[in-house]
Design a binder for these strands. Sequence first.
RNA 1: GGUCUGGUAGUUCAGUUGGUUAGAAUAUCGCCCUGUCACGGCGAGGGUCGCGGGUUCGAGUCCCGUCCAGACCGCCA
Length: 582
Amino acid sequence: MYRSHTCGELRPSHIGETVKLAGWVQRSKDLGGLTFVNLRDRYGITQLNFNSEDNAKLTAEANKLGREYVIQVEGEVIERSSKNMKIPTGEIEIRVSKLTVLNASKTPPFTIEDDTDGGEELRAQYRYLDLRRNPVQEKLRLRNKVALETRKYLDSIDFVDVETPMLIKSTPEGARDFVVPSRMNAGQFYALPQSPQTFKQLLMVSGFDRYYQIVKCFRDEDLRADRQPEFTQIDCEMTFVEQDDILNTFEGMIKHLFTEVKGVDLGDKFPRMTYAEAMTRYGSDKPDIRFGMEFVDFNEVTKGRGFGIFDDAEAVIAINAEQCAVYTRKQLDKLTDWVRRPQIGCKGLIYMRCNEDGTFKSSVDKFYSQEDLAKWAEAAKAKPGDLILVLSGGLARVQKQMNELRLHMGDELGLRNPKVFKPLWVVDFPLLEWDEESQRYHAMHHPFTSPKPEDMHLIDTDPGKVRANAYDLAMNGVELGGGSIRIHDRAIQSRMFDLLGFTKEEAEAQFGFLMSAFEYGAPPHGGLAFGLDRLVATMGGSESIRDYIAFPKNNSGRDVMIDAPSPLNEEQFKELNIKLTL
RNA sequence: GGUCUGGUAGUUCAGUUGGUUAGAAUAUCGCCCUGUCACGGCGAGGGUCGCGGGUUCGAGUCCCGUCCAGACCGCCA
């Protein structure tokens, strides 16, 4: 037996007991004759006491221990003469009678402390050491808890966990596939799933009725702080349901998770908003509704005063940053520089201060009288002391830019508290999205999404206007998940492939199996998928998902610990009938 | 594919207008200290200033190229 207790469990009630502990040396302190060693494991830290008056030889051995040595000790639990009330085990310590070094350690490249001195790159390279740190372990335990509660909840309402294959077929729609060469089928490739989409629909055709899976998905696209090439979805699908049934079911799941895992009550009913409304009010399909600062249409109050920038613009949009009239010229210039960065791409930023004395000061006073500006304030419901920020240009572009500015102001003003959680269902997404590059429509969600029946009449005349039975769950400005009611009718599915520019032959080759399945009594069905990594990161109050993944990849899709990807040898290429053209 | 920021001791960083021997903190090692817990005191070792080229009497510092990391845009049904 290596240990009788963990390093987090001994209390004054254990005083007098002889115990055996094992763990890592957090740090040791030689006071000259008296030596303290902090022993750490997953559960906590227990102090070991070595006294040269008791045992000089043992104390000398203890003084040789370095950080991260793995040791085992035996000794008596005693009361500390100076207690540390900051840690749960701080009232006791172990008077050690036997010390065994189980494994020595090199000095780690960074300190294994909650507040480590190591930078990200180094910690990624030594991820197994980084994972010894408490804050990182806690994040993975949070993930474990979320996954466990997800299973409990879905299992309790009759969802069945079914595994789907990882080696599947490459399809043209959507993200780039990761591909895997097939040795037994020379010149042919599997693709790793971007999601189990078609399989879960086939399971509905099979009559499973309620399916879920916590499953890895793969997309070969460029990465971000909240995007990894392999990520995990809570993937779900249900039969004989309408949109409301799905929203209600998974609203229940998210509420369950927040209650059980975070002790947070998300309230009675998640608010719902149409895509169109979200775009008009926030310029985003995943608005952060933790704060207001909603868009105000400024077309009416700005046009026709001879200011060309506004007069010629398709859209003039304002936000009201409350209590920000105190912003100095320097701060406003900095904001202007911020929106002019190429990533945002504004030409400029117009502002208006609402002075405390009721007068207005704008950067376009030349064109607008005090009466004009009073109308601005009225439109934006601005009070003295507020600051109005205005952007103009093409509608879609300004919405996007103003969304960025709004979120930036929210950050600056501390309105985006990571401990506050505001869910929002965004519904009625457009079915299709025009792609300039390929000059054709793309499915906004995916090709199996059903159009709204009441919009079907537009499908030939104005397909871009057709709305879909598609929905997303946004929280705090993050898209946590999304889904749709699927097409279960072969004719409509064919029509959809048509719209997406597939020939009959292509559609047959890519998705023939699905369309065939639809001819054998496919039930109405729909579902959704949550990004587990993002969900857990949001619950943990982080924007980066990397800390919530045990072994994440870096910006360029590399695992810097195992150094992957890596070249193959000649033999492997030969076996696969692959020649490099590099 | 693009934009921005960074790369200096094991680590985190500073380094002025281009100018003497490149510093601090922390970690490590040694000595002192019997109640530390961010202990303290004294001392020591530790540098390919990412890499390559250029300008210059002289480059950590300026220029060009390149590699790496991070954030973002494009991309991500």
